[in-house]
Design a protein around this nucleic acid. Structure first.
Lengths: 137, 137
DNA sequence: TTTTATGCAAATTGTTTGCAGATAA
DNA sequence: TTATCTGCAAACAATTTGCATAAAA
């Protein structure tokens, strides 16, 4: 991950195997795993990595704007290496979180700003329902 | 609150002072309080009410579709007696949560459904930024 | 009088923190 | 070599649970 290495250096953060491994998982999945899930996934390749390190690293990456934290209403946070704002669809049956590319966000942010005077910095849009795989019941 | 009394009876749930008090708070505010906040607010009028009861009651009301739970990315949930879907704006400075009435939700749900095949049941839209009171810095 | 709800305290879960030793620069 | 990071264990905070008592139907 050259991208991450660069970004970390730019922020005067050390490039450690743990940080690379965690970012790598997020960068190569669209599953939006939680800290716990990432930790379990790393146990085979990085058996000494602690859960605390996963949390600390996710916090570091979040502050460095390399990952975004998403909050779908579960009891834990999930993480996404795609930082550009985009909606998510959460399947109520299999709990999967799917990235969407609808562009309603920019338009509606502008509308809100005009209508209410609220200055929009970012936005999150979640759809709850059933994914294509779970629709057939 | 006749509405609540009816709804509870319809679901074979008992009408208790605690349930009335908690629903009443939510029904008469637009502050979207957390369980803790509701608990504190009730201490003067209902000094024997326990925090566990607040949690259990909110869960009951949520299941009875009388309140909705919202998750703005804080460490706790907030509650809203308006169950119809509507966007929320969260001020990053004063942490207030404001109800919005923009109607982007219905349109975009339809769009997502057509584009991706994901069957949308409900949606949540959050805007983060600065409220009119906090913009002047 | 029967069933369900409340209130207490203890348990659980996700996350954070302090600190000594390890590692990147 | 020095500043930062990791990993462990303990701490924390939000929420849940078990159970005896209390209250609604």
């Amino acid at each position: 991950m050259e991208k991450l290495t660069e970004m970390l250096k730019a922020k005067e953060l050390k490039v450690t195997p743990q940080r690379l491994a965690i970012f790598n998982i997020l960068y190569n999945t669209n599953e939006h795993p939680s800290a716990e899930t990432i930790y379990k996934q790393l146990q085979s390749t990085h058996p000494t990595m602690s859960l605390a390190t996963v949390y600390k690293t996710l916090d570091t990456l979040k502050k460095a704007q390399l990952v975004q934290e998403i909050n779908v209403g579960e009891d834990s946070f999930r993480y996404d290496a795609t930082v550009a704002p985009h909606p998510h669809a959460i399947c109520l049956k299999c709990n999967s979180v799917i990235d969407l590319e609808t562009d309603v966000l920019a338009e509606s942010a502008k509308k809100v700003q005009e209508d209410t005077g609220f200055e929009v910095i970012s936005e999150k849009l979640y759809f709850y329902g059933y994914c294509t795989g779970c629709r057939t019941k």
